[in-house]
C-alpha cells in the first residue's frame, strides 16, 4: 500500500490519492474510535447542523468554542494529528489569500498601516472570524465524515432517503476513483520511464490530456462491460445495501445528547453580547 499512498509533490506530479481500505480513507488510523460505533446517519446529520450553526455565528468567543468542539470530535475520531494539520494548512493557504485583504478593505478604526494603506480593527476581526469558521467546519467534517469509509457515507445517504440515483453515482464514483487512480499512476510511470517531466509548456498539457483521454476510453469500456454484466443479472435501478442498519444504541443516544448540548451552548454563547 505504500506505493498508493505516495505524497503529493508539485513537480513530479504524483498524487496524494489515499488507498481505499478498511478503516477509512485519507490516512486516518484504522483502529476503533469512539465515533465509529455511532450511527453514520447521525454523524452526517450532526455534521450538517454543526456547519449550519457555525456559519451563522458571529462572535469570536462562540467561534472559538466551535473550533474547540471540532477539536474534541477530532480527538474522539482519533484523527492523525500530522495529516489533519497538513490538510488544515492547505485550506488556510487559500483563506489567508482572501483574508490578507480584509483588514485593508473593511472600513473602521485604523490600527496599523502598510505602504500607506491603513488596516482596520474591524477588518482584522472579520478575518479572524472567517478563519475560525472555516477551520471549525473543516475539522468537524474530517472528524465526523472523513473518519468513515466513503462507502459507509454512501449507505448513510441512502438511509437518509437521498435519491437512489445520486447514491449510486456516489458509490460508483468512489469505486472508480480507486481504479482510475491506479491506472493513472501506471500510465504516468510509463511516461516517466520515457523521460517525461511536468513542465510549463503546451507539450506537457497536451500529453497529460492524451493520458486522461486514454484513461476515459479505457474507463468507458470498463463501464460498458459493467452495465452489460448488471443487465445480465437483471438490474432494475436498485442495489441492496450490504450493511444492516444497526439498532439505535446507547452510544447513539449519548451522541445525540452531546450534539444537542453543544449546539445549545454555541447558541447561548452567541447570544451573550460581548
Amino acid at each position: 500500500m505504500t506505493a498508493l499512498a505516495e505524497v503529493s509533490h508539485p513537480h513530479t506530479g504524483s498524487i496524494d490519492l489515499p488507498p481505499l481500505q478498511k478503516g477509512g480513507w485519507g490516512g486516518f488510523r484504522a483502529s476503533e474510535h469512539l465515533l465509529k460505533t455511532v450511527d453514520a446517519r447521525l454523524r452526517v446529520v450532526a455534521c450538517g447542523i454543526f456547519a449550519l450553526t457555525v456559519v451563522g455565528l458571529t462572535q469570536i468567543p462562540s467561534l472559538l468554542m466551535a473550533l474547540a468542539l471540532a477539536g474534541c470530535a477530532a480527538m474522539a475520531a482519533r484523527l492523525e494529528f500530522a495529516s489533519t494539520l497538513r490538510r488544515m494548512a492547505a485550506l488556510d493557504g487559500f483563506i489567508l489569500f482572501v483574508l490578507f485583504f480584509l483588514p485593508f478593505t473593511v472600513p473602521g478604526e485604523g490600527i496599523f498601516s502598510l505602504n500607506g494603506v491603513t488596516a482596520s480593527y474591524e477588518g482584522v476581526l472579520r478575518a479572524v472570524e472567517i478563519l475560525l469558521k472555516a477551520n471549525a467546519v473543516v475539522l468537524m467534517i474530517m472528524a465526523l465524515l472523513g473518519s468513515m469509509e466513503p462507502v459507509e457515507l454512501g449507505h448513510a445517504m441512502a438511509r437518509l432517503r437521498l435519491p437512489v440515483k445520486f447514491v449510486h453515482l456516489f458509490l460508483f464514483t468512489v469505486r472508480y476513483i480507486e481504479v482510475l487512480g491506479r491506472e493513472y499512476r501506471r500510465l504516468r510511470t510509463a511516461m516517466k520511464a520515457r523521460g517525461f517531466r511536468l513542465r510549463c509548456d503546451p507539450h506537457t498539457w497536451r500529453s497529460i490530456g492524451y493520458l486522461f483521454g486514454m484513461l476515459l476510453v479505457r474507463g468507458i469500456e470498463r463501464a460498458e462491460r459493467i452495465v452489460t454484466a448488471m443487465r445480465c443479472r437483471g438490474f432494475q435501478g436498485h442495489f441492496h445495501l450490504m450493511t444492516e442498519a444497526e439498532p439505535v444504541g446507547r452510544r447513539d443516544y449519548a451522541f445525540v445528547g452531546l450534539s444537542v448540548m453543544a449546539a445549545c451552548a454555541l447558541i447561548i454563547l452567541e447570544s451573550l453580547h460581548w
Binding site: 490519492l17 460508483f172 469505486r175
Partner: peptide, 21 residues
C-alpha cells in the same frame, strides 16, 4: 450511472494533478 460515475472519478483524479506554473 456507471459511465457518469467514471467520468466524475476521472475529473476527481485529474484535479489532483498539479501543473507547474
Amino acid at each position: 450511472i456507471p459511465q457518469v460515475a467514471l467520468m466524475s472519478a476521472a475529473l476527481f483524479v485529474a484535479a489532483l494533478v498539479h501543473f507547474p506554473v
